[in-house]
Design a protein around this nucleic acid. Structure first.
Lengths: 154, 154
DNA sequence: TGCAAATGGTTTCAGATGAAACCATGATGA
DNA sequence: TCATCATGGTTTCATCTGAAACCATTTGCA
């Protein structure tokens, strides 16, 4: 009988438990990427996600940023505060609705984006390079399926 | 004016970026599982991981638990403090090395384990049920490959 | 021996985080 | 017009977390 000392209790094998594996792999790779730009640009994960979204969609409101980053609005608010303070993001007030903000990257923000984005892509390639080509295709397909589709925001 | 695209800046598409997808999927599923046992047993993720490891390997030290759970020793120390306080884990001092602890589940710990483990497995099956059978096989294979190998064996 | 370095584990401090309360503005309806 | 509710966003509070400092014990070695 394999390594279990308590077969009657059917203990979980953590290292073969998919949610655990996902957590480990995710944390390892995210941390590796974050280490790069945190040191170089004093930029947190949440801040980078906000910047990445604003790079694609100029003029979003904070709420829309939250939707697209799967972060909650508190996290977005704080990330924006830091980004605006560092002049990486500009924030106007919406002309027709004074509650909404209108967000976008500044020149400084774009500069950082253009350094970080290729580096992030490189790390992604390094991760995928550990897989055979067909495995890479399957992983992409599988993650697309597992991603929460409609995404109720909070 | 259309919400701006910036092809010259090659912005990252977050929702197709593998590390981001991993993070979302991992957090979603981990949270779903944790919600179950947190409410029912007042048990945190870190505590559950410690219990799962002790269910398989009786008599580990805190350092060994940290290795096997991929948690740092501070987190393990705190999880153990709560588990011991709740009489879910017993802790002796190692006979030949008074620094080491010798850990194991109590009867109460086993009882909780035997309720939580099947539930966790059920959630894992629910996750995998969203995939075709061959995708399930590929995911398992892929995660095994992506898991950081630490050269130790158990 | 004796003393510095290493190790197991805990505590401290400082930053990150989420839930809920909060504030200002905007929409709704009598 | 006013009262009420909804919405965008920020602040507060309590918890969680990791890095580094810390304590006790063990190991290495002159």
């Amino acid at each position: 009988m394999p390594a279990g000392r308590h077969p009657d209790h059917a203990p979980l094998e953590l290292e073969r438990f998919v949610p655990y594996q996902l957590s480990i792999v995710s944390n390892t790779v995210s941390q590796a990427i974050a280490d790069d730009y945190q040191a170089r640009h004093d930029l947190g994960v949440t801040e980078w996600r906000v910047m990445a979204v604003l790079a694609r969609f100029d003029g979003l409101s904070a709420r829309e940023v939250a939707e697209r980053t799967a972060m909650d609005k508190v996290a977005v608010s704080r990330a924006l505060a830091r980004l605006v303070a560092a002049s990486r993001v500009r924030r106007h007030i919406h002309a027709d609705d004074k509650r909404r903000s209108v967000l976008g990257l500044t020149a400084a923000g774009w500069k950082i984006h253009d350094e970080v984005a290729p580096m992030a892509r490189l790390r992604e390639r390094e991760l995928l390079a550990r897989l055979a080509p067909e495995e890479q295709v399957w992983l992409t397909r599988i993650l697309d399926k597992l991603m929460p589709q409609d995404g109720r925001e909070g």
